[in-house]
Each structure stands twice: as structure tokens, then as C-alpha cells.
């Protein structure tokens, strides 16, 4: 079965080099696991990320394909959002982190978590 402590440890490994928070949440915006400075920050990032993901998912049509990645650039930070199995993965970083490294971290985490999370997705 899935070990919740290990998920947090994996997320913690990505929370380096300017990444402030790594959050795993379900599509409704409830947190599953996170690595952030405070749980208040994680809750705020998670709620907004899930909301924005839902907004952009509305453009999905057969000819467009599924939404696979979102990248938000703000004046003081960057956010990358992607889907892992049925869950949403969100990385929040400082402004000086390049979008490419943020995307690479997202893809590495997705590869690592996809298989174990798909086992519990049906429950």
C-alpha cells in the first residue's frame, strides 16, 4: 500500500533550489501531502491551483486533447501545475527559478508518483 510519509519525503526532495512549496492535492482542492514552509501557505496555493486547473480544463475537447500542464508567471514567483494519475501536483517557486527547471521537476515527480498513485486512485 501507499506510505503517506514517503510521499511527503519525495515532495521534500523537490522543494530545493528556489522551490518554496510542492503540493499534492485531489481535484477538489483537498491536500494529500505537501512540503512547504507553513501549512497555511500550502492550503492557499492548493486551493487556488485546483481552481485554476478546473477553469482551464473547461477548454478540453476531443480535438484539443486533455489539459496536461499549466505554468503561471507572477511578479514575485512562478507556479507549475500538472496532473499525476487523478491527483494534481503543484510547485511554487521564487521568481528567479527558470520555467524549464520547474517543468523538469514536475515531470520527474510525475514519473516517480504516477504508478503508486494510480494504484490507489480507484479507492
Amino acid at each position: 500500500m501507499l506510505k503517506p510519509k514517503l510521499i511527503s519525503q519525495v515532495l521534500q526532495q523537490a522543494t530545493t533550489g528556489g522551490v518554496k512549496a510542492t503540493i499534492l492535492l485531489n481535484p477538489e482542492g483537498s491536500l494529500l501531502a505537501f512540503a512547504a514552509q507553513s501549512d497555511r501557505d500550502a492550503r492557499i496555493y492548493g486551493a487556488i491551483a485546483s481552481n485554476i486547473w478546473t477553469i482551464y480544463s473547461k477548454h478540453c475537447k476531443p480535438e484539443v486533447g486533455p489539459l496536461s500542464f499549466l505554468m503561471l508567471e507572477c511578479e514575485e514567483g512562478k507556479v507549475a501545475i500538472t496532473v499525476v494519475s487523478t491527483m494534481i501536483l503543484c510547485l511554487v517557486a521564487r521568481d528567479d527559478v527558470e520555467l524549464g527547471i520547474l517543468k523538469a521537476k514536475c515531470e520527474a515527480l510525475t514519473r516517480h508518483l504516477e504508478e503508486p498513485l494510480s494504484r490507489v486512485a480507484g479507492y
Binding site: 487556488i48 478540453c60 486533447g65 505554468m71 507572477c74
Partner: peptide, 22 residues
């Protein structure tokens, strides 16, 4: 979405990239 992103605490949102299948 930009209004929502501006509430992240990272100041004003500048741009959003969304990638779909095609």
C-alpha cells in the same frame, strides 16, 4: 484565472501557459 493567480501572494500575474494534448 489571472485574478485568482494574483491572490497567491506572489503579486500580480503576468502570464499563463496552458498545454493540452494537441
Amino acid at each position: 484565472a489571472s485574478d485568482q493567480a494574483s491572490k497567491l501572494g506572489l503579486k500580480k500575474n503576468r502570464s499563463i501557459v496552458s498545454v493540452y494534448g494537441a
